[in-house]
Design a protein around this nucleic acid. Structure first.
Lengths: 225, 225
DNA sequence: AACGAATTATGATTTTGGTCATATTTCGTT
DNA sequence: AACGAAATATGACCAAAATCATAATTCGTT
């Protein structure tokens, strides 16, 4: 089992602000786990009794709406912390976390880390900064949802996936999302997402290799209205 | 000028976690100000060099979208802190704050409070909790925007305004929002908001006294689909 | 009380996106 | 290589909401 104090991934999140001693203690009680694609890390309404540090892979955070659809509110990637919101607010999770590809995550029990959050100001300020950033992102999504067309939101999602996760050797997006996932990010019907993607293909903005998507004209996508 | 350490409003926000000494220091440098209805407290893209503690009144936090519409992402009320997100993340504000009714606010300069945030773990944990709550609310709004109809969102907004701010003696909503404000909360065209409200009136869910709105059947509003 | 700008209201029309039905393709499994 | 379930694609139709135009009203000002 690897040691937190030597783990490179913590540089990407607030855990870097913990002291050596705190890290050693956390390291001794953390639980490393592999999560297979499609597996639920935690579910809506579930008490998340700690935080997950994502070492490998990505997952989606989504919320079931009244009409039975899953709305994806955030994609979490390698280096991010997961579940810290619920832990801080002492509430059950309002979101579900599901692996989009195979993942390696380390679970740190709340009992071990909550004390650090309440006594190490550098750490809690760092978490605060991260949360502030997430809140800003959420505000932006609200505005996009309210004011932009499905076409535009989908174009932006493709660019986001491209820029955040990169491409395979054949230039297809390295993260393979289903059309349903795209629809759930954008907040539209699966058929509508498929239709818009088909149109993008006709307009030579993207091309398809099987189910995979390749961006052909990223500037064109940016201009979509 | 009133003193923070004796101010009752701080009970409603994170400032209650400051020590007596910290409060005395802050009190001596805070700036009390009156903000008239319609006035901008801070604007999008502006550096907010501190936090505002809302003593009286309410304001809207909105963001201008590419198509020129203002999307309201949050209504801030008496007792809330304003602008702390930008302060924490050291970024310019992504939102504009405009008074919806006359307000009394106290401005606390960043230089005075940032140090407390970085050294008083109880305070920063409290701010963290508040931010976590805001983030959860934002997630909920994203889901509502994506999955619910304008009718439903507007019904929920009316209930929210009713429950959060109460009613006048004639039972009309005590916060007078323009139809445009309602449209900007819900994320729709002003005409659409007006149309839906007219329909609510026909359906005897609400009634109108001039521009003011009176909820006649709150249970009916809750059932709107 | 009358005026007038701003707000609210409503109608007509178009556009966007949702829904349901039905192909077609993809890709893992045999 | 063939099979079949799941995913993707497409068509037809419908509903929701946007847009543009035009009235009607509210409410502060004179």
């Amino acid at each position: 089992m690897s040691k937190c104090e030597q783990c490179i991934i913590k540089q990407f999140n607030s855990l870097k602000s913990l002291t050596k001693e705190e890290l050693v203690r956390i390291s001794s009680c953390k639980i490393s786990m592999n999560v297979k694609k499609g597996e639920i890390i935690f579910d809506e309404g579930e008490a998340v009794n700690g935080v997950y540090c994502v070492k490998e892979g990505i997952c989606k955070l989504s919320k079931l709406s009244a009409n039975g659809k899953d709305q994806i509110v955030k994609i979490v990637l390698k280096g991010d912390l997961l579940g810290y919101r619920s832990m801080v607010s002492d509430e059950v999770s309002n979101l579900q976390a599901v692996a989009l590809i195979d993942m390696k995550v380390c679970f740190i029990p709340k009992s071990e880390i909550i004390n650090d959050l309440q006594t190490n100001p550098k750490f809690s300020f760092d978490v605060l900064k991260e949360m502030a950033h997430n809140l800003k992102e959420a505000d932006d999504i609200i505005v996009n949802m309210a004011q932009k067309s499905v076409r535009q939101r989908l174009a932006e999602t493709l660019i986001y996936i491209h820029d955040s996760f990169g491409v395979n050797s054949d230039r297809t997006l390295s993260v393979l999302l289903s059309r349903e996932d795209y629809a759930n990010i954008v907040g539209t019907a699966t058929e509508s997402a498929i239709r818009v993607l088909s149109q993008f293909k006709k307009d030579k903005l993207i091309s398809m290799v099987g189910k995979k998507i390749r961006i052909e004209d990223i500037e064109g996508l940016k201009r979509v209205e």
